[in-house]
Write a protein that binds this DNA or RNA. Structure first.
Lengths: 201, 201
DNA sequence: ACTATTCTAGAATATTATTCTAGAATATAA
DNA sequence: TTATATTCTAGAATAATATTCTAGAATAGT
């Protein structure tokens, strides 16, 4: 029996659509992208596409929600594995960097098209995912403020201080303006993040 | 003579269009926004709109380019006023924060819709503006590396370290997720930025 | 096997971005 | 001033394309 090129479980229509949409959206933007073209690439009928995602924006929203959720999931996982403020900070930085390099197309889409105006249902979902992200970070770190391991700061400042530089760098990297991947700067960004939030002790 | 409500130089069609577009884009996103609606709000004909901006995307691009350019201009101005690495870092942080609070709608638009896929002419312009931004920051700081005032880092890391946290915080602020304006955190962000890039001396 | 539900299909429709033609306003030259 | 060119305004006509709709196929549940 020769090698089987097609996977045992062939991709569902929805998955093919998401994949095709990601490609086209990244190439020409959500606006310019045509549903018909995406359906053609995914080999899925218009009817199916609308059945699954409701609209072109629904497709974009799904990509956004999936991507952010996956990123959050990995971050939560990494934070669970470590103990202490410094280890947490470093794990957060590296988790995000790793996710970006494991999912460059999705990362590019997310960073480049935050156009997500809170539309109805999906808008809510998106806000939720977003809120979870910040909450997770704040939750993890607030316990270390008492012990003095962390500098006492307004809760909503930890995430920007720890991950803001990585996000900025990633944007530039994903848009092709720099070629050195963030993983090459991981320790530098981790050091900076820790320096920004560590306590006096 | 009573107070004159209308300015001596009435707003041009192009200006009215930009203003209306900004409002609508922020409310419902570039995708959902209708040119006809924008024209109605701006009291400008379809023909004029297309004469001035070529397309809906052209309108969005113009807002983006105008906004980024203005931000850059102010940043350059502030950097010119100061001497030394620390003063530069602090000026950069505060300039960006100030711009955001002076131009909240424009800032929201820029932060929320980076969807700027490099489209032809305007895409080039946008890339240029963006490149100028990073170049300005790198130029300013590279001279201070020799003297030891600044930590020696890859040039493309200064901007993310100095401004990344502010950008992250601004996004959250402009989307309404936090209410404390960045200006209230200006010193904190400036301290963190300086700590991240200052040299050993 | 029957029924309900989910999914696929693509033609028909509706929406809306863009083009086009003509004319008004404004600048430039003689 | 008059003539001429250019820029700007107008909105109806057109073209592109997102979305709806109806019908039927596949699948799951009983």
């Amino acid at each position: 029996m020769p090698h089987e090129a097609t996977p045992a479980t062939p991709e569902s229509s929805a998955d093919r659509l998401l994949k095709a949409a990601l490609r086209v959206f990244n190439e020409i933007g959500v606006n310019a992208a045509s549903i018909h073209e995406i359906c053609r690439l995914a080999d899925v009928s218009i009817g199916s596409a609308y059945h699954h995602f409701g609209s072109k924006q629904g497709l974009a929203d799904a990509l956004l929600v999936n991507g952010l959720s996956d990123n959050n999931r990995r971050l939560a996982e990494q934070l669970r594995r470590v103990q202490g403020a410094e280890a947490g900070v470093r794990a957060a930085v590296k988790s995000v960097i790793r996710w970006i390099e494991d999912n460059p197309e999705l990362a590019q889409f997310i960073y480049m098209t935050a156009d997500s105006k809170a539309r109805d249902s999906t808008g809510k979902l998106l806000q939720q995912v977003n809120a979870d992200y910040w909450a997770m970070i704040e939750d993890y770190f607030k316990s270390y403020v008492h012990s003095g391991e962390l500098r006492r700061l307004p809760l909503e400042c930890y995430a920007p201080l720890i991950l803001g530089p990585v996000h900025d760098y990633a944007r530039k990297y994903l848009s092709g303006q720099i070629t050195v991947p963030p993983s090459k700067r991981a320790d530098m960004f981790a050091d900076a993040a820790w320096l920004a939030v560590k306590g006096n002790g």
